[in-house]
Structures are given as structure tokens and as C-alpha cells.
Design a protein around this nucleic acid. Structure first.
Length: 722
DNA sequence: AGCACGCCGACT
DNA sequence: GTCGGCGTGCTC
């Protein structure tokens, strides 16, 4: 018998696989997890190919273990990972590692393995014959094992049940088996009546045959979730699985509760990074054996094994959280579309402010556009948006008189109000009145934010903290003044202005503690807070039925940004914040303070016409050949000094000279210094995907083979921020 | 990425 | 005299 070999993808930053010898008679499948020696370490990897020709290398080592804790990755997950590795020019082993629960990246069998399986006695009569007639509990357990039973059911019989089970298993009287599928009774609670647009949308999804992306474009409150629910209901009636992606981990509990209420008896699992290791593995396995009918999760869930996949839903598809910002920089929304193609199923992308990429696809007819133009909740009206011009106005702690008046009226009439501030902390910078000194981070090219409560200056980019100086470090003057308004300063000002109001500040600082956000949202719903101060984390997904007024301080930040996507993001953000107001019958009011009331941006925003705004933006992007009319990638380089980083980028630019890809000149990054590293980048662009792809492959290969000295580099394909 | 081996500064 | 700094070299 000839030797057998296996190619293994490992989580190392090398764009190649490694071959190992398979010990005799071992059964290993493609997609299976194997434990292998690697240098002086032991690693977990994924078997990609099996063969009987010896690899052409000096030494071939043996596979150490092929634990059965993880069923082999199904073909479509492998293909999706291969696609991502290629598209994002990232090593396949690292992509596969990101696709797996952490426990399956460890080079040892998952300790909870025993727990997850089910057990059955193939011959109960034979088993009973070995048990004493007086051992009633043991006999009861044996009877139970006529069918596969999970560990929890077995434990329920007796405290010693697992020990008996192991004894029986050792002599072959009991076998470990696949967990039984839970009979899913799809008995949804009454579905609300849909309006005509919603019905049409649900129909479009349920009638879609094979791969079909659908863009569900609906304003806040137009009932997108109801469309998802009814489309999923249809999928479940066919016995297929639904995958639902949400942008943020904060939104999963809320959505999960709504799904559970709607589909009682349905097995719903969530997948996100907040789960404990064991739970994550359990949910992943339940998705993979088809037991979970609905899988709800953040971006990492797009890689979950789903044998019966029938529909993918991507909620708030424009949201930046779908992109991983570090390491393997992928877009889960794009991966979801590709996966739907692989599986030949529909994919439903929902948003009130679709990404321009998706909008263009819909305009080009590649995606089917489904519009929801009406608020689905009866009697609900869109909020009234007003601009408050502030260019020549005296402000009180950042507030115009109009905004303060509106807050006073709202509180007096018993309504809730939200003040939206785009920065946390007390003030974004501390400054010397005398010499102009400003608090800045010694590791980053960024200002240190004043956090008055903790008496700290803190860098929001690297986490560096220092004590607030009593005097100016440059000139010794004692007149240090906070400049600008963060959430804490706004909170302090409102406390003074509205002493009787119940204030609640909701930002990353006040919700750092586990469960804090949930508790705060509960208080808002219970009416225990009537004046909310929040950053954009409040804008997403949470319903505040009592909210009558939203005040937006300082909206202009995104209007004159060097980043061509800033306006698109600002529109989405402002529309999303205003969508929080007036959801339960009464008309909400939104006040936006701006220095530039004449800017065309605000015209489109006030008209609430995202379609018109998006079309205009697309025209501009077309004229300037910006994405989505061209394909972009960024090569980032960082070093201890700026010069080597720039030199590296110049050399790389020379490497690509003369090709179909345009390489811009190296420039320092917007945040040129971060955590002590000088950062720079070059933009690579091409009119088509294919030439960019080829250049990236060549770059990644070359840089991996001959890594630059002293320079860390990363490729960012379809970059979202600069 | 790890984890080694490999040559130069301040410490028991 | 050595403990340890991080440069560079390799991993089937």
C-alpha cells in the first residue's frame, strides 16, 4: 500500500500549504481539522487535498491527530474561504482560521467534545442483559438509549449516568453518534398584516429561484424586519435554513428575542464574538448539522456551515461593521453575496441608506430593487427635520437657543429627547489660551481627549492616558481650556440647564461594563430617563417609542472630508439618528445644527430622498472614476520612522510600474502616527477587477517571499476609510 | 505569526 | 562573567 499525504492550510502568514504524511489507515476527509507539527510548534490546520504522491520537499512529517470534534468543513465554506483568500490577497490558512470558532484553532481536541455529541445503544436488549435487575436507574438509562440522546438528557437520569455511559461505550454497548435533529414545528405566532409593498417584497424573495440578490430599500419604520421574518417563515416551511447577519453584537439579543417570540419551537442560534468558547462551538455545530433552523449573527457567521441554507439576510447592509478593520479585512456583506451565489440561493440586503456599491448594482439591474416607501406602523409619520443655522450664532455650551427651547418644550410635555454628539469624552482637546498648546498624544498624531470624570487625558486611537496637567507644559500658564464638546461635557451642561430632567449618557465609556447597555436601554424604555445623550452607538437599531425630539450638535464633520465616502456615511448616520424619533404614533422632531445650511447635502437630507442623493453621488463618482466605478486597494506600510515606510511604498510602486493598475504616490496616512508607528500608504486603482486582482496576487506573493525589513505591511481591498 | 539562533550592553 | 535586547531565518 502506498503512502498517503495531505495538504494542510495553517494559520501562518505564508501564502502556501504544507504537506504531511498520513499514518496508515487514518481516515481524513477534505475540510477536516488535523493537528500537525510545524517547526517547533504544534498547530491545528485544515486538510485541503489528499493524495498518494510524495511531496517534493526534503522532509515530510506525520499528521499527529485528526480529532473528530469538528465535522469537515463543507465544500461551500471551503470555496468561500478560497474565494476570500484570493480576493483579499490573504493567506488561506488565516482565512480558514477566522472562519472557525476559537476552540477549533487550538492544537488539541475541543475539551467539550464529549458533551456535544449524542449517544445510542445499537442493541438495547444486549445492553439490558448486562445490567442487574435491581439497578433501576441504569435500566431506565438503557431504555432511553433506544434513540440517540444528548448529554443533558442522559445526565437527567442520574448523577452517575455519564460514568455508566462511558463504561458501556468502552465495551461497545453504546456508541457516540450524530445528535438527533429536533423536530421543528413551524408554528409562528400570528404574522402582522403586511402592506402592499411589504407583500410584494416577501413575494419577490420567496419566488426567487436560485441565486438572486435583492436590495430591500426601506426607510426606518417601514417594516423591513417584518419582511425578513415572513421570507424566513417561507424558507422554514420548505425545511431550509436561514442565515441572518446583523452589523453589531449589541443588536443580536434584541433581534434574537423578536425571532424567538415569532418562531416559538424553532431552534434559533446566534453566532458572535461575545459568546463563550463552548457556546460558540455548540451553536456552530448546531448550524452545521442542520438542527438550527435560523442562524443569527455578526459578520463571522457568514462562514458558518449550513447544510440546508435557503436564504441569507443582511440587515443594515451598508453598515461599516460588516468590514473587519484589522488582519483579514473582509466584507461580510460581499462574502454573503458570494456565498449565496455558491449555494444558488437568494440573498436579501436591507437598508434605509444602501451602500453606493449596492445601489449601483440595483440601478444596473444586477440586484433586484424592492422599495418600502411607507411607514408600516399605522399612524406613524416620518419625523420633521429642521436645520438650525449656527454660523453667526452665540451658542450656550454648544446649543442654539432653538435647540434649548425645543428640549425644554419636549421635557415639559413629558416626552423623551435625545442629544446626538459625535464624540465621547468631555472635550476633544485641552488647549492653552496663552500659547496655543494643545493636548496631543506622544504615540499618535492625534489629540488627547479630556475625560473630566476620571481627570484623564486619553488617546482614542492607542489608549494612552495621562493626568490632566495643572498648567501648560509649554508656557506654564494656568489658563487651560477644554475646546469643543464631547458627550460628557454636553451631559454636564444639560445637568445644569435642566436640573429636573433624568439624564442618561450612553456611549462607549458609560457602557463599557458588561450588560450596562442593556440596562440603560431598559431604563429608557421604562421611561426612567427623559434626556438622553448619546453617540452613534445609539443610532443603530434600538427603538425608543417615547422619543419625541432628536437634537444633532455639530453635524458638519463629514461634509468637507478628504474621504469621498464621508458624505454617504453622514447621510446614513443622520437619517438613522432621526429615525429614532417619533415611532409610536406621534410626529417626531429632529433639529440639526449646522454652519452650512445651504449645502446641497442638507437639501437632500431634509427631503428624506436617499435615492436622489445616492444617484447624485453615483454621478460624481462616475465622473471622477471613483469606486464603485473603479476597483481600489490600499497598500499600507508602517515603520518606526516615516522614511523607511515611504521608501518601501516607493519600491513597491516601482514593482508595479507599467501595468494596468494605477499606483498613486505614497502619502502619510490620515492618522500618520499611531501607537508609535509611522503610517503611510499607496492607493492602487484599476478600471476592472481582474487587473487589480492580478496585481494584488503578485504583490502579496512577492512581499511574502521577500519581506521588507523593519516595515509592517497590509493590503486593504475595497478600503472603506483612508 | 511563533520560535529559534545569534551576537552586543548592564547586572546578580 | 551571564541575562537579555530584538535582527533574520525557517517552518511540510
Amino acid at each position: 500500500m502506498s503512502e498517503r499525504y495531505v495538504s494542510v492550510a495553517l494559520d501562518v502568514p505564508l501564502p502556501r500549504v504544507f504537506d504531511y504524511r498520513l499514518p496508515d489507515a487514518w481516515q481524513v476527509a477534505v475540510g477536516q481539522r488535523v493537528i500537525v507539527p510545524f517547526g517547533r510548534q504544534v498547530l491545528s490546520g485544515i486538510a485541503l487535498a489528499l493524495g498518494d504522491t510524495a511531496p517534493d520537499v526534503a522532509t515530510v512529517r506525520d499528521v499527529l491527530d485528526a480529532p473528530g470534534d469538528m465535522p469537515p468543513l463543507p465544500g461551500d465554506v471551503l470555496d468561500l474561504c478560497r474565494f476570500c483568500a484570493d480576493y483579499y490577497a490573504y493567506p488561506l490558512g488565516a482565512v480558514l482560521a477566522a472562519a472557525l470558532p476559537g476552540a477549533f484553532r487550538q492544537p488539541r481536541p475541543w475539551p467539550g467534545h464529549e458533551e456535544a455529541g449524542a449517544y445510542v445503544a445499537p442493541d438495547v436488549a444486549r445492553l439490558l442483559a448486562t445490567i442487574s435487575a435491581r439497578a433501576a436507574k441504569q435500566r431506565a438509562l438503557a431504555e432511553l438509549l433506544t434513540q440517540p440522546r444528548r448529554v443533558d438528557a442522559i445526565r437527567a437520569v442520574a448523577g452517575d449516568a455519564m460514568r455508566w455511559l462511558r463504561d458501556w461505550q468502552a465495551v461497545g454497548l453504546v456508541e457516540r453518534t450524530r445528535a438527533p435533529a429536533v423536530a421543528t414545528e413551524v408554528a409562528p405566532s400570528a404574522s402582522p398584516e403586511l402592506n402592499a409593498e411589504q407583500r410584494a417584497a416577501v413575494m419577490a424573495v420567496t419566488e426567487a429561484r436560485g441565486f438572486q440578490p435583492l436590495l430591500l430599500f426601506g426607510i426606518t419604520g417601514s417594516g423591513k424586519t417584518e419582511v425578513y421574518l415572513q421570507a424566513i417563515e417561507a424558507v422554514r416551511r420548505r425545511g431550509e435554513q436561514a442565515l441572518v447577519l446583523v452589523p453589531e453584537i449589541n443588536l443580536t439579543p434584541q433581534l434574537e428575542a423578536r425571532f424567538r417570540a415569532r418562531f416559538p419551537g424553532e431552534h434559533i442560534v446566534s453566532l458572535h464574538s461575545g459568546l463563550a468558547d463552548g457556546e460558540r462551538v455548540r451553536h456552530w455545530l448546531e448550524a452545521g448539522d442542520g438542527r438550527a433552523g435560523i442562524v443569527l449573527g455578526t459578520r463571522l457567521a457568514v462562514f458558518a456551515p449550513l447544510p440546508g441554507l435557503g436564504l441569507i439576510v443582511v440587515d443594515e447592509e451598508h453598515d461599516a461593521s460588516y468590514r473587519q478593520a484589522e488582519g483579514f479585512r473582509y466584507s461580510a456583506r460581499d462574502a454573503a453575496v458570494y456565498r449565496a451565489r455558491l449555494r444558488d440561493v437568494p440573498v436579501l440586503l436591507g437598508s434605509a441608506t444602501p451602500a453606493l456599491e449596492s445601489w449601483k448594482n440595483a440601478r444596473d439591474g444586477r440586484y433586484r430593487l424592492l422599495r418600502l416607501t411607507q411607514r408600516a406602523v399605522s399612524g406613524a409619520r416620518p419625523p420633521r427635520m429642521e436645520l438650525v443655522p449656527t454660523q453667526r450664532m452665540r451658542l450656550t455650551d454648544g446649543f442654539s437657543d432653538a435647540a434649548l427651547g425645543a428640549l425644554r418644550d419636549t421635557l415639559a410635555s413629558g416626552g423623551q429627547a435625545l442629544v446626538f454628539v459625535n464624540r465621547r469624552g468631555y472635550s476633544p482637546v485641552l488647549s492653552c489660551q496663552d500659547c496655543g498648546w494643545m493636548s496631543s498624544c506622544r504615540h499618535c498624531s492625534a489629540r488627547l481627549v479630556l475625560h473630566l470624570g476620571e481627570r484623564k487625558l486619553r488617546c482614542h486611537h492607542c489608549g494612552h492616558e495621562e493626568r490632566v496637567p495643572h498648567a501648560c507644559p509649554d508656557c506654564g500658564n494656568h489658563d487651560l481650556k477644554p475646546v469643543g464638546h464631547g458627550t460628557q461635557r454636553v451631559e454636564a451642561a444639560l445637568e445644569a440647564l435642566f436640573p429636573d430632567a433624568n439624564l442618561l449618557r450612553i456611549d462607549r465609556d458609560s457602557t463599557r461594563r458588561k450588560g450596562a447597555l442593556g440596562e440603560m436601554l431598559r431604563r429608557v424604555h421604562a421611561g426612567e430617563a427623559d434626556l438622553l445623550i448619546g453617540t452613534q452607538m445609539l443610532a443603530k437599531g434600538h427603538d425608543f417609542p417615547g422619543l419625541a425630539l432628536v437634537v444633532v450638535l455639530n453635524a458638519d464633520g463629514g461634509l468637507f472630508s478628504a474621504d469621498f465616502r464621508a458624505e454617504e456615511r453622514l447621510f446614513a448616520q443622520l437619517l438613522q439618528v432621526s429615525g429614532r424619533a417619533g415611532r409610536a404614533g406621534r410626529e417626531g422632531r429632529v433639529l440639526i445644527q449646522t454652519h452650512y445650511p445651504e449645502h446641497p447635502f442638507y437639501g437632500a437630507l431634509l427631503a428624506g430622498d436617499y435615492a436622489a442623493f445616492a444617484d447624485t453621488q453615483l454621478q460624481e463618482r462616475r465622473a471622477l472614476a471613483l469606486p464603485p466605478f473603479s476597483a481600489w486597494a490600499i497598500l499600507r506600510g508602517e515603520a518606526k520612522q516615516l522614511q523607511p515606510a515611504l521608501a518601501f511604498l516607493r519600491e513597491t510602486k516601482a514593482l508595479l510600474a507599467g501595468g494596468a493598475v494605477h499606483v498613486a504616490d505614497p502619502v502619510p496616512a490620515a492618522l500618520a502616527r499611531k501607537a508609535g508607528w509611522e503610517r503611510a500608504h499607496v492607493v492602487l486603482s484599476a478600471t476592472g477587477r481582474a487587473p487589480l486582482q492580478a496585481a494584488l496576487r503578485y504583490l502579496a506573493q512577492t512581499l511574502a517571499e521577500t519581506p521588507p525589513r523593519g516595515v509592517r505591511w497590509a493590503l486593504d481591498v475595497d478600503p472603506q476609510e483612508f
